[in-house]
């Protein structure tokens, strides 16, 4: 929170710069507009969930149900409206609200049972995966054509998803640094008992961070649906781990209370860039398979 640049803070930007340079050198198409757009599109889902994870981790928790929420959101969004386009918008709202509600439930269970959030969200993930697979053993459903614009349209050359992600990052940064809620998140994550003794409302703060995480996970699920046009029950599987990486790379201390969103943003950029870069480089099959294993 206090502006001071430490040497460690420069590591990620530096890596980012190296990745960009290497990309430009290795392949002339790397820095083209086309690839840039492609890149932003891949970035969005990861960006959304990292925001949610950042809230939770700053508040002293961890959310391992992100991927399961995203998958459930994806199949419900594609399936609920049953082909009736008029029902699509309501089901979109329902899914986003549902994500937040499931997240809030995670939060409520952690504060009420006082169980480690790891267990609660892992258990929740298992429950949600079960529901998802019951509802959609195979990819199912469809989306209205216009909704695919969420993933593929652009405004003045910038993909819509990228714009949304940028806007959400700015809003989140504002919320974290300039609102009482953001301050509470830092305080609770830093020292929950001290926060309680200082008269802050600890439990609602924790629950809200999980609700936000659930919301962002559902948003990522919706984004997947708009990209693929179908509700894949495994859409979000990789997101749980993926959401942790940028947050950790970006330097938010696991344990809570420290770190800023700028780092997370750079972390998201770096991870996506690396993925993108690997696609462009003719790396040995070993590395490619290794990366796919992630």
């Amino acid at each position: 929170m206090i502006g001071r640049i430490s040497p460690q803070a420069l590591v990620v930007p530096l890596l980012l710069l190296i990745a960009l340079t290497v990309g430009a050198v290795v392949n002339e198409r790397f820095l083209t507009l086309g690839n840039l757009r492609n890149f932003t599109e891949q970035l969005a889902a990861l960006g959304f969930v990292s925001l949610g994870q950042a809230f939770v981790i700053l508040g002293g928790g961890i959310d391992l149900s992100i991927g399961a929420i995203a998958s459930l959101a994806a199949v419900l969004l594609a399936g609920l409206h049953g082909g009736n386009e008029a029902l699509f918008i309501p089901s979109l709202l329902l899914v986003l609200a549902g994500g937040a509600a499931v997240g809030a439930m995670n939060g409520w269970l952690t504060v009420w049972l006082r169980v480690h959030p790891l267990i609660v969200t892992l258990g929740m993930a298992s429950v949600l995966s079960g529901i998802t697979l019951l509802y959609a053993p195979q990819p199912r459903g469809s989306v209205p054509f216009w909704f695919e614009g969420f993933a593929f349209d652009s405004l003045a050359g910038v993909p819509l998803s990228g714009l949304l992600l940028g806007a959400l990052f700015l809003i989140t940064a504002l919320v974290l640094t300039r609102t009482p809620f953001g301050r509470r998140v830092y305080a609770v994550g830093g020292n929950a008992e001290a926060a309680r003794l200082s008269g802050l409302s600890v439990k609602p703060t924790i629950i809200t961070t999980y609700a936000l995480s659930g919301f962002f996970a559902a948003l990522a699920g919706a984004y997947y649906v708009s990209r693929t046009g179908v509700g894949d029950p495994h859409a979000g599987d990789a997101l749980t781990l993926a959401s942790l990486t940028p947050v950790i790379v970006g330097g938010i201390l696991l344990g809570g209370g420290r770190g800023g969103l700028g780092g997370v943003f750079l972390g998201v950029l770096l991870i996506s860039l690396l993925n993108n870069l690997l696609n462009y480089m003719n790396l040995s099959t070993f590395v490619q398979w290794w990366c796919k294993g992630w």
Binding site: M1, I2, P180, R183, Y186, G190, A194, L200, G257
Partner: peptide, 19 residues
């Protein structure tokens, strides 16, 4: 009961910062 990672001002006004 202080938050070591926050500044003096942020600690003093924790929970009731001027808006």
């Amino acid at each position: 009961v202080l938050f070591p990672d926050l500044s003096v001002a942020e600690n003093i006004f924790i929970g009731h910062a001027p808006r």
